[in-house]
Design a protein around this nucleic acid. Structure first.
Lengths: 260, 260
DNA sequence: CGATTCCTTGAGGCATCTCAAGGCAAGTGG
DNA sequence: CCACTTGCCTTGAGATGCCTCAAGGAATCG
């Protein structure tokens, strides 16, 4: 079943001999149809034939150690990546060293779509904890999409979703104050944890205060103070990176219109 | 040549009789191959056969009056729009009335791609001056894309470009001060004017100070003050909406790392 | 166990916001 | 044609939310 290895595009692992049975030599490869993340990830919405053909691509799996980059700004764009486990942060750098975190990605979410615009990645992605990804060769994916309207739609929808996500971040950065920003951030994490079967009210943040601050357009001290403020308002219980939301409605109110 | 009208999708103009020659009765329709914007717009990069097939769709043209909306947040997504002339602003609204401008679109730029994610538009688009657009039925476009890898790539690349554009806006909103923001904004307008054959150093802004402010995450008074500051620094000459950039390099320096 | 990293908190400063007033240009109605 | 309204822009003065700088505590690591 490993004959689908295609040498025309560089792979993350050297192609193994198709006849070799030793699991050590064979790169780990993944089929979407049996993946527990299939309803969150790329194949979401696909069925039958389309899903089967996606399986044919046999995406290479790859481990990424905490702190390691999946790709850097300027790297040639060849793959999009699906997070299997762990958390990533994407960020841009300015020449003077300032950084802007553009997103945090968790299991089932895609990374690297921005690279398509120019053929080079426009941001960098770093693992916040030991992680595992599927590397999806874009050339193969688009080849496959040529034969499937459904797959085309799925890809387009995923990109559009990324645009919408960034829209709300712009709203946040452009017109919210510190409390609204942090509340929006925590509620967003909460929803995504819930969608993955974890508690929506108690979770472990993988990112530092500085990273949250960069994402939300505020300084790490302000993030810390705002956490403390929420705790004083009995909306949260925070202990470093461990967060328990004790008043989800109250937090939602802090996020929406405190104005009147 | 008007036989390509397809009744399966509602059109902005009722389909004319293909034999009618009177220009009054016939809706204005556009062919990409002869459009003066073709190298900026959707067909950019397409040639020969692909371009011809795009021509077959015969996009309906539509006038939009200053202040009128092209679509509203929540409207059903059916079309993407290409600006033929005039300027638009896209924006999101918060329940309490706060608005965030997410972009300004000029001739050759596309609007509405964010609607694809959920099938409904996630933002609104309003004309800042009398304008004209091509309405591109997404269903027809994606049908056409099914037969053309090139067209698929073009669409994906355009969406990816939108993601990258929003990335830089996030950088701006998250980590720049008022002067850097306004400088970045003006340099961006300058480049886009240049790409359209207009002077990159002297132009008429179509948006108000409040709209610029909303886009850049600052209040209109701050926008006004920053304009005045640039004028005092002899970088610009400003008279209301008329801007002449007198020191493009200086402005670039104000934008990049003042922190050497 | 010292070094390091990350988080929290305080005090003071500053960039931007808020509120307010006035100017200018375009539009309207008498 | 002029008085008046309206919308947009500019500028000033004071308020404030967030930043900067600084110190100290807690957890992690070699």
């Amino acid at each position: 079943m490993q004959t689908a290895v295609r040498p025309s595009i560089p792979l993350h692992f050297t192609p193994s001999n198709a006849l070799t049975r030793t699991p050590v030599a064979a790169p780990l490869r993944t089929q979407c149809s049996t993946c527990h993340l299939r309803d969150l990830c790329l194949p979401c919405g696909l069925t039958g034939n389309d899903l089967q053909r996606l399986d044919g691509l046999m995406f290479a799996r790859r481990r990424v150690k905490e702190g390691d980059a999946l790709y850097h700004e300027g790297d040639k764009f060849q793959f999009i990546y699906a997070v299997r486990s762990g958390t990533f942060r994407s960020h841009l750098s300015l020449r003077d060293g300032r950084e802007q975190v553009t997103g945090f990605q968790m299991a089932g979410e895609l990374l690297g779509l921005e690279g398509l615009a120019s053929g080079r990645h426009a941001s960098s992605a770093v693992a916040l904890e030991d992680a595992e990804i599927c590397a999806i060769p874009y050339a193969h994916l688009s080849e496959l999409a040529a034969g499937s309207t459904e797959l085309q739609h799925v890809i387009s929808r995923l990109m559009s979703r990324e645009i919408v996500r960034e829209h709300s971040l712009m709203m946040l950065l452009g017109s919210m104050n510190a409390e609204e920003r942090l509340a929006a951030f925590l509620l967003n994490i909460s929803q995504r944890m819930k969608a993955r079967g974890y508690s929506p009210t108690e979770f472990h943040l993988r990112m530092s205060r500085a990273e949250i601050g960069s994402y939300l357009g505020m300084k790490l001290e302000t993030v810390s103070r705002t956490f403390s403020a929420f705790q004083a308002q009995r909306l949260l219980a925070v202990d470093k990176k461990h967060v328990r939301i004790s008043d989800l409605d109250g937090l939602t109110r802090a996020f929406e219109t405190r104005v009147q």
